[in-house]
Design a protein around this nucleic acid. Structure first.
Lengths: 100, 100
DNA sequence: TTTAATATATCGTACATCCGATATGTTGGG
DNA sequence: CCCAACATATCGGATGTACGATATATTAAA
């Protein structure tokens, strides 16, 4: 999401933003959901820096409760996701489209 | 494509591999096709290192004619693309799926 | 309480992506 | 022939993604 305009960098942040738009989650839950989709679980050293970046850009907000921190989108984050989704679809439509 | 197993790195190489599977192209044509999809054209400093990497991994072969080099997939590249496409779809299906 | 498990977080290192600048070779127009 | 346009290619520097190792805090189990 750093790459707000044109690059391939930021796909993890994009995916995290998308997942949080469906349901607020904490870091471990996000990692497990990515594991479910890709078959490999991102390590803490991957997922927490990504969340930190999204927070610093004002795209996600946090709610701490005990040992867990639940992340959810800000309205700014929702706007960013909408734009990013449009770019993503324009770039990859037929990759998903043609089946195998 | 480096990230043959689990990471978000390699999305450009993945896209290039996909584009070449539809039609053999030279570097400039690939850059223009990416521009058409994303609205931003990758510079030479982006696209040629990516092609070099794909060549070094044995995923694309070259055919030089005058000033242009036409790239196309090897059978190894086709296999790699097939796998990468499966991972990509599993990860991003509903991102493209839900319309907006 | 001690122990184990979980969630969070940072560090160092490596690599992919990205740009702008720069350079070389080919081609076509003047 | 000379020059502009194009295709190719590399370099340096910045940022994102990734892992393993490490550290701390909270919670649950023994």
């Amino acid at each position: 999401m750093r790459g707000d305009c044109c690059d391939m960098r930021g796909m993890l942040s994009f995916l995290v933003l998308f997942l949080l738009s469906k349901k607020p989650m904490n870091g471990s839950e996000i990692a497990r959901e990515i594991e479910r989709r890709k078959g490999a679980k991102p390590s803490p050293g991957t997922i927490y820096p990504a969340l930190k970046g999204l927070r610093e850009m004002g795209f996600v907000k946090e709610k701490k409760s005990g040992k867990t921190v639940t992340y959810s989108l800000t309205s700014k984050g929702k706007d960013a996701l909408r734009l990013a989704k449009q770019r993503f679809c324009a770039t990859f439509t037929d990759v998903l489209g043609n089946g195998k």
